[in-house]
Design a protein around this nucleic acid. Structure first.
Length: 155
DNA sequence: ACAATCGCCGCGC
DNA sequence: GCGCGGCGATTGT
């Protein structure tokens, strides 16, 4: 199977994705879009519709290094909730700044939901623009996007 | 090897 | 509300 790339819209930004099957290699925010499609769950998420990002895998979570363990811990933060840099640090046995650095180098934002990691006082950083982080958190707080298919069926 | 680089935190003012 | 020092893994020279 070949690696595919595409983009979808999120507010004023375009979300570029490269992936193969269920494995996502890169996600990045850019001003310009490209024509091709992105995985369904990311398309639904960006549109604010119910989605299950946990169906996707990220290359960033593989391995036993510190960064992969951080990324796995971040993936366990439920949609609509947040954790602090220090909480993640304690859970994997490292320092808060290492978590910050790992977030800044996260190759697959959204799939590894680094926007759910906030500073103890304040929202913390996000590149290329903290406004994206605020928008993602606001969307998840609203709640529609967080409904999984199971909850859709159960209600 | 070494130095620089961080999306942080807790303290003391 | 500052400013400061400590923190640890990664990346580039």
């Amino acid at each position: 199977m070949a690696i595919l790339t595409g983009s979808c819209r999120f507010g004023l930004w375009h979300v570029h994705v490269s992936w193969e099957g269920n494995t996502v290699y890169r996600v990045r925010f850019a001003r310009q879009g490209i024509g091709n499609a992105v995985p369904e769950e990311i398309r639904r998420y960006c549109a604010g519709r119910p989605s299950r990002l946990t169906d996707l895998q990220s290359i960033a979570t593989a391995g036993e290094g510190v960064y992969p363990r951080i990324y796995r811990a971040v993936r366990e933060i439920p949609c609509g909730k947040t954790a602090t840099y220090s909480e993640i640090a304690i859970s994997v046995g490292t320092a808060p700044r290492v978590v910050g650095l790992a977030m800044s180098r996260n190759p697959t934002p959204i799939v590894v939901p680094c926007h759910r990691v906030v500073a103890k006082t304040g929202i913390g950083g996000f590149s290329p623009d903290p406004a994206i982080k605020e928008a993602l958190l606001a969307m998840e707080r609203e709640g529609t996007v967080c409904r999984s298919e199971m909850r859709e069926i159960n209600r």
